[in-house]
Design a protein around this nucleic acid. Structure first.
Lengths: 137, 137
DNA sequence: CACCGATGTAACAATTATAGTTACATTTCG
DNA sequence: CGAAATGTAACTATAATTGTTACATCGGTG
């Protein structure tokens, strides 16, 4: 029950797709997500840096930069994932004097990289528009 | 830099595939992973519950219950994942009075479930034997 | 121009999960 | 019996996310 960053980001962008800009204050969004408005502003800040939405100090609200059908879940995922490049991580100091310890990192790196690629392909195939469609079906 | 449970579990089972049982004490394994032996025993306990290996109090070592080519990474993943059913989680209390808030959970549930399925398919396609092959190529 | 309401961020506390550690009951074997 | 190991409980440490408080800044409005 943690790391809702992707879920909340999709929630935010869904609201942005369906409401007029001036209504989309961080307080309004926080009311829908039911969290603190700073949590929302932190995420919108990252989504903005990734070019998915625009906003301005002093002016209420946020606005999508492009059509929901042009925003993939991968775009959103990458916007908020920062440095982390795989959902699975690898222990940092296996023993180099052990045959397994010496080679496990590069092996797992390759293995986990392949898994990560399939995750990202799947996320790339879904758009914010797909989410919106599902919301009202 | 956290949650190395899958990586360490694969490390443990790789050692188990390559060494005689009586050498595979939790201390020996901990020396290869470079961690505390209790960390190893905690994981082997879960791998044992999942039927991937055997062990006995008083008798040193662990032993695989079947061939490395018969152990998929999905088997390992499920052995240690416990309750968690998706790599992505969903916020728990969206506002039901909001159209988006009311439907976002079931929508994301379906979406994330699909992603999870692709992850598990990918993990199912890789075996411990594949890891061993890569370790020595 | 001063105020109000909003964004953007910094700083810190709270929560949660994993990793690491200490301790110890229990078991097997010499 | 005594040594060595497994299995587990209990606790601390670390790390990431979430929640909160505070505040600088901007822009529209009276």
């Amino acid at each position: 029950m943690k790391n809702n960053r992707l879920a909340v980001s999709i929630h935010i962008l869904s609201l942005a797709a369906l409401n007029p800009r001036d209504q989309l204050t961080s307080e309004f969004i926080a009311g829908s997500v039911q969290t603190n408005s700073v949590v929302i502003r932190r995420l919108t800040s990252e989504l903005k840096k990734a070019g998915l939405l625009t906003s301005q100090p002093g002016i209420p609200g946020i606005k999508l930069t492009r059509s929901p059908s042009d925003i993939s879940l991968l775009d959103i995922y990458k916007a908020i994932q920062g440095y982390r490049e795989s959902v699975f991580s690898i222990h940092q100091n296996p023993n180099p004097d052990c045959e397994v310890g010496a080679n496990i990192q590069s092996t797992l790196d390759a293995t986990f990289h392949k898994v990560q690629e399939t995750i990202e392909e799947e996320l790339a195939n879904q758009t914010l528009q797909n989410i919106l469609d599902h919301l009202f079906e």
